[in-house]
């Protein structure tokens, strides 16, 4: 169990923050290279014209997931020390639906807007300002909807393999199958709706 290293080596928060900065650079670099800094390109995903967003996202999920599953299987990583998102189902669905509306209206999600900001996209700057306002409103509203916000918790750290009571490896296999099916679907849709010259 040598991973996560910050825990194993008992790194100070300064060195941990340095790691955060370096990893962030890689994250931002590949986001921009993937085309996430351009709202037009992002939005075309939702018209099946340019499926870059979902392709990049699912490839990234599958890559990181395979790594985590392998490390876990060989006892290299202590999953108890890994952040796993809590599963509040109904607030999660509500938030997801609102975010989806925000995505198609605004063209960015916060992570991609940050990359857009870095490459001087004016709409991205405005988008992040809007995001800050939306979050401030949420922070003011959450105390009044606190019971809803805390509702339908099915597990602070519950994962799909635990929920369906199957092994991590099998879950990984299903996710890969799902991703492959989705990639195939995306390619077909792009060929059908996409404008060849528009692509990249």
């Amino acid at each position: 169990m040598i991973f996560p290293l910050s825990h194993h080596l008992e790194l100070s928060s300064e060195s941990n923050y340095l790691i955060a900065f370096l990893i962030g650079i890689g994250f931002g670099f590949f986001l921009e290279q993937g085309g996430f800094g351009n709202a037009n390109k992002l939005a075309k995903t939702f018209y099946f014209r340019d499926m870059t967003v979902v392709k990049v996202m699912f490839t990234a999920i599958v890559t990181a997931m395979i790594g985590l599953i392998i490390f876990r299987a060989f006892g290299l990583i202590n999953m108890d020390q890994i952040w796993i998102n809590p599963s509040y189902i109904v607030p999660g669905i509500f938030g997801g639906l609102v975010m989806g509306v925000g995505f198609i209206v605004g063209g960015y999600c916060p992570g991609t807007a940050l990359v857009g900001m870095a490459t001087l996209k004016v709409d991205a700057w405005i988008n992040v300002l809007g995001g800050a306002l939306g979050m401030y409103i949420a922070a003011e509203v959450i105390p009044y909807t606190y019971t809803f916000w805390k509702s339908t918790l099915i597990g602070e750290r519950i994962t799909l393999p635990e929920y369906f009571n199957i092994s991590y490896g099998l879950t990984g296999f299903f996710v890969i199958l799902f991703a492959l099916a989705f990639f195939g679907f995306s390619e077909v849709m792009e060929r059908k709706f996409g404008n060849r010259e528009e692509l990249r």
């Binding site: 998102n85 607030p91 999660g92 938030g95 609102v98 960015y108 809007g130």
Partner: peptide
């Protein structure tokens, strides 16, 4: 863009 960003930010706080 501003409107969409606000909605996204609001939703993100509920979905954590």
């Amino acid at each position: 863009s501003f409107l969409g960003g606000s909605l996204f930010g609001f939703g993100a706080r509920y979905a954590r």
